[in-house]
Design a protein around this nucleic acid. Structure first.
Length: 654
RNA sequence: GCUGAUGUAGCACAGUCGGUAGUGCGUCACAUUGGUAAUGUGGAGGUCACGGGUUCGAUUCCCGUCAUCAGCUCCA
């Protein structure tokens, strides 16, 4: 038989069995072959897979596609285990996902103990080494088949398939599931799996429909890889900003203040202020921005003009009652209209444009109560907001500059490697969510696509993710648990200038509508802080650290000298403190390390006599004794250049 | 908003089958005055998230509210 390899080359083999035997040759590859014979697929990392078209695929489970098949099969095994233990449970769907798989059941909620029992049952099914076979039915037969099994969700799925379709089922030796496949050919191929959690989900993701219980699990090619994955999850917990940020006293929350309203403590505030001062100076001095400071609230009339009242009212905090009160106010969810009125304060010539307005802007959004999370999803946040009022002929260039500024900020923070770029488009099938005509959307989306392509930035296109007034570039990053959050957004708005009657005067003396770019450079400070905590596991670049240096006197005798050193550091705008408790030096050093300080200075008799400091850091451990002035010069340089100092190998081992 | 779990000292957690609570770390005091990851001793600190109900008596049982977590959905 012939096998076509991924690279297109064709190989010929004598029998199905020999495919398995020679599989080592193509262990990183994927082969598909028309194959009639039955193959028991188990050769080390290789597991055979019964493909949708009844041909035989050979995938290694190191291949992402193969791993997905493995996980999908694990979800079917889980479904069988659940049906055995909870016969009244109804099955729905169970796909493979990025890090594992899930299956949704209509059932009573599962406890951790239930999951452990299900795991045990799955192990039995795997051990039994059932052959998995595929068969097809016509649609009517398929409906009848699932009706007899009393599986209403499956019946619903089948009825939606086109008439005359051949509907495939996979039978794993008793348990049969509707499925497009492919699957492993034996349950024995699942070598390492773990059920991680359970939660509620809605049938078809629709909150008005049936409540289902979802069980998440993960499966890997080997026990070692599973162990590595579980260890990674443990590590993620240690980096989780919501835990580490509180532990490091960067922020806290208080029940009576409310959900989604975190309090930044002095340390967290210091970090945010360092970023804010940097960004404001950078934008104003190097990127041509002017700064505004506009109200945090406005009358409802403003939001009626902007369209927010129609499109975003549920997300706003409204002060007052439209029925009873003469004037109703709302806290602002965006800065846009406020800066538009700054623009409209005077008449502008085409020569004035582009006008780039920046504002460190606090916004309020009334999120649903279940949405709040740590610093990443809050009801009040402060963003490096800005709007550029631009002539149409300048748009591409200005949009590019906004992307360049964002990229520069990310690179400086050391976060640029973490991100993915998205072109967020409107949804032509959901027009009431958006303003403007289809042609405008087509055109503006095309502009953004061109800019991204010209800048050679890889991006994905997401339908239905646009703002109601225009398409945008979203720059997303994954949190430690792999969940994507938008960190930065840059939006192309060809519509709101019309709503606000904004114009400039062109060469001919005529009024022309400008275009608008809504953008942020560093995103909102709360979310960026969260991202920094997780990226650096709390070990921030020195320039961002709320406490950059701690002076540790060996004993109280040297407390005065320690204070002198600290005062000198502060005079040089270095955030320094003294630990003058009557603890042993080893204890103070341990605490300095646990507090993730970049530097600590040990001072005793020798240092006091010589006017020196003994420098240690989390980058290199003991760095030796230096004159204080030399240390100050070095750390100033590190701070001023916003250097990200790497940890040295010898230190890493500790 | 929905589903589930959780809420005991600053933090991590025990515990009370209903009779108002403990441990470790931290903190404070005293002694110790030290050289690169934990000195010793002693003390303080809790309306057991909040509000109702049942009870002679509730931190414990029941109901509600608030908050936290996981997920769904929604978003920067």
């Amino acid at each position: 038989m012939k096998i076509t390899l991924k690279d297109g080359s064709v190989k010929e083999y004598a029998s199905a069995k020999s495919i398995i035997e020679i599989a080592a040759d193509i262990s990183e590859g994927l082969a598909r072959a028309a194959c009639a014979g039955e193959v028991d697929g188990e050769v080390k990392d290789l597991r055979t897979i019964l493909d949708a078209d009844c041909s035989l695929s050979i995938l290694t489970v190191k291949d992402p596609e193969g791993l997905r098949v493995l996980r999908h099969t694990a979800s079917h095994v889980m479904a069988e285990a659940v049906k055995r233990l909870f016969p009244e449970a109804k099955v729905t769907i169970g796909p493979a996902i990025d890090e594992g798989f899930y299956y949704d059941f209509e059932a009573e909620p599962f406890s951790r103990e239930d999951l452990d029992r299900i795991e045990g049952e799955m192990k039995k099914i795997i051990k039994e080494g059932r052959k998995i076979t595929r068969f097809t039915l016509s649609r009517d037969e398929a409906v009848k088949f699932m009706e007899e099994k009393n599986e209403p969700f499956k019946v619903e799925l089948i009825k939606e398939l086109p008439e005359g379709a051949e509907i495939s089922f996979y039978d794993q030796g008793g348990f049969v599931d509707l499925c497009a496949g492919p699957h492993l050919m034996s349950t024995k191929g699942i070598k390492a799996f773990k059920l991680t959690s359970s939660s509620m989900a809605y049938w078809r993701g629709d909150s008005s429909r049936a409540k289902l219980q979802r069980i998440y699990g993960s499966a890997f090619a080997s026990k070692e890889e599973l162990a590595e994955y579980l260890a990674k999850l443990e590590d993620a917990k240690l980096r989780d900003h919501n835990r580490l940020g509180r532990e490091m006293k960067l922020f806290t929350t208080v029940d009576v203040i409310g959900q989604g309203l975190p309090l930044l403590t002095p340390k967290g505030t210091k970090m945010v202020m360092k970023m804010q001062r940097w960004i404001e100076d950078l934008e104003d001095n190097e990127w041509g921005y002017v700064r505004t400071k506009t109200p945090l609230m406005a009358k409802s009339d403003l939001y009626k003009i902007s369209g927010h009242w129609d499109h975003y009212k549920e997300g706003m905090f409204v002060l007052g009652d439209e029925e009873k009160d003469k004037e109703v106010f709302a806290l602002r969810p965006m800065t846009c209209p406020f800066q538009y009125y700054v623009y409209k304060n005077e008449q502008h010539s085409y020569r004035d444009l582009p006008i780039r307005m920046g504002e460190t802007s606090t916004l309020f959004r009334n999120e649903d109560s279940g949405e709040m999370h740590g610093l990443t999803r809050v009801r009040q946040f402060t963003i490096s907001e800005g709007h550029l009022i631009v002539r149409p002929d300048q748009m591409a260039e200005e949009f590019k500059n906004c992307l360049a500024l964002a990229k520069y900020c990310l690179t400086t923070l050391g976060l640029n490697e973490d991100v993915t770029y998205h072109l967020s488009k409107w949804d032509p099938n959901n027009r009431e969510k958006y303003i403007g005509e289809p042609e405008v959307w087509e055109e503006t989306e095309g502009h953004i696509r061109r800019v991204l392509t010209e800048l050679d930035i890889p991006f994905v296109e997401d339908v239905g993710e646009a703002a109601f007034y225009g398409p945008k570039v979203d720059i997303n990053a994954k949190n430690v648990y792999g969940k994507d959050d938008t960190m930065i957004t840059i939006q192309w708005d060809a519509l709101l200038a019309e709503q606000f009657d904004m114009y400039y005067i062109d060469q001919k003396g005529e009024k022309v509508r400008p275009c608008i770019i809504h953008r942020t450079s560093i995103g909102c400070y709360e979310r960026t802080l969260a991202w920094l905590i997780e990226h650096y596991a709390g070990k921030f670049p020195t320039w961002l650290c709320p406490e950059q240096v701690r002076v540790l006197p060996i004993s109280e005798k040297y407390a005065d000298y320690a204070e002198e050193v600290c005062a000198e550091l502060k005079k040089n705008k270095i955030d320094a403190t003294v630990d003058n408790r009557s603890e042993k030096i080893g204890y103070k050093i341990r605490e300095a390390r646990n507090d993730r300080l970049p530097y600590w200075l040990i001072v005793g008799e020798k240092e006091q006599a010589e006017g020196t400091v003994s420098v240690s850091s989390r980058f290199a451990g003991n760095e030796g004794t230096k004159p204080l002035a030399a240390f100050i010069a070095a750390i100033r340089e590190e701070i001023d250049t916003k250097a990200i100092r790497q940890v040295e190998a010898a230190e890493e081992k500790k």
